[in-house]
């Protein structure tokens, strides 16, 4: 296992049994997150981005299972393959909630409505760290203050329903950060929020990045949020990564036709766009549908016969910019010939 990366996912496959057959929700994903980095995972519903994050958390439950691959995590007690740990075993429980934490789209699904905010933030501390209740309380209050909650001592004693949506999202972030995790997974953390509150929470997360040494895996479908938050981006389609690049390279020079289509189909608020929005024809195929060749080929304007025969590998096209597309494989091959 490489020493530089906090997380290395190799050929991860997560399958679900459905009435219509086996759905390959995650179908051979490779990705790495370096310590302190913010990686955005982008894609539309059903692309496998959330399932990937749940696999990291050890939260894949029947009818789903990890079919293959590795999730190597540089834990505080040494490297560990998270995909091999028994769910709810001692090892994953020691990592989940302390070293790897998660925030969700809808804070009310993560907060217990009948427990006080303070008690919920103290819980991981009391479970995982050998500290007194008084110490835990001080840490929890400090954590509430760090996420910009006014009068944290008072909020500590309140219930989730006393807080507004934005405040709840802050409380959930406080809970996720209180144990100083090395990886924070944020699954659409601002999608349910209004735009001005979303801006507040994104600003907060950017501020926290300065103090918080850990890495962030940011799962979203919003290309505006990605541009604001990420260092590196991976784009997923039908359980696979189709493109991986730094945030600047991805927006300046998207390589995969799917990424290009996504970026073009977003209307511009500056009003510089065309009268008609560019679209990607058709819709995402069902997860149980078997597609020969590249999964995007049926919707791709550049598809060639080979795209319908073989699956393109995720290959490096230019420095650190990778794409899974035969259009760019010729570039890669030519360069290999020249060398």
């Amino acid at each position: 296992m490489s020493v530089t990366n906090l997380l290395d996912i190799r050929d991860l496959q997560v399958h679900f049994m459905t009435e219509a057959g086996v759905a390959r929700a995650v179908d051979g994903v490779d990705l790495s997150i370096a310590a302190g980095e913010t990686l955005a995972v982008v894609g539309e519903s059903g692309c496998g981005k959330s399932v990937t994050s749940r696999a990291i958390m050890g939260l894949i439950q029947p009818p789903g299972w990890i079919e293959g691959g590795e999730i190597l995590f540089a834990g505080r007690k040494g490297p560990v393959d998270l995909s091999r740990l028994p769910p709810n075993g001692r090892q994953i429980n020691a990592i989940r909630g302390t070293e790897i934490t998660m925030i969700f789209q809808e804070p009310m699904t993560a907060l217990n409505p009948v427990l006080k905010i303070g008690a919920q933030i103290m819980e991981p501390l009391l479970l995982h760290e050998k500290i007194s209740k008084a110490e835990a309380k001080e840490r929890a209050i400090a954590s509430l203050a760090a996420v910009g909650i006014a009068s944290p001592r008072q909020r500590f004693e309140e219930y989730p329903h006393n807080l507004s949506g934005g405040m709840r999202q802050r409380a959930m972030i406080a809970m996720a950060l209180v144990c100083n995790p090395s990886l924070l997974i944020a699954d659409e953390p601002t999608t349910a929020l209004d735009v001005t509150i979303q801006a507040q929470v994104l600003d907060l997360m950017k501020d926290l990045r300065r103090d918080f040494a850990g890495a962030i895996m940011f799962i979203t479908h919003d290309l505006g949020v990605v541009a604001a938050m990420a260092d590196h981006v991976v784009v997923m389609y039908r359980g696979k990564i189709v493109e991986s690049a730094t945030v600047h390279a991805l927006y300046r020079h998207p390589l995969h036709p799917y990424t290009q289509g996504l970026l073009r189909s977003v209307p511009s608020i500056t009003g510089r766009g065309a009268k008609r929005l560019a679209t990607i024809e058709g819709s995402v195929p069902r997860p149980t549908e078997r597609i020969r060749g590249c999964a995007f080929a049926p919707r791709c304007p550049h598809a060639t016969p080979i795209c319908r025969q073989e699956v393109p590998a995720l290959a490096e096209v230019e420095g650190h910019h990778r794409a899974a597309c035969f259009l760019h494989h010729t570039v890669v091959e030519e360069r290999a010939h020249a060398a």
Binding site: V195, T196, Q198, A199, L202, D222, L223, G224, V225, V226, A227, A228, A230, V247, H248, Y251, L263, V266, I269, T270
Partner: peptide, 12 residues
Amino acid sequence: ALLSAVPVPDPG
């Protein structure tokens, strides 16, 4: 304020 809060898909 509403307009300024919209995240723009351009990292630059």
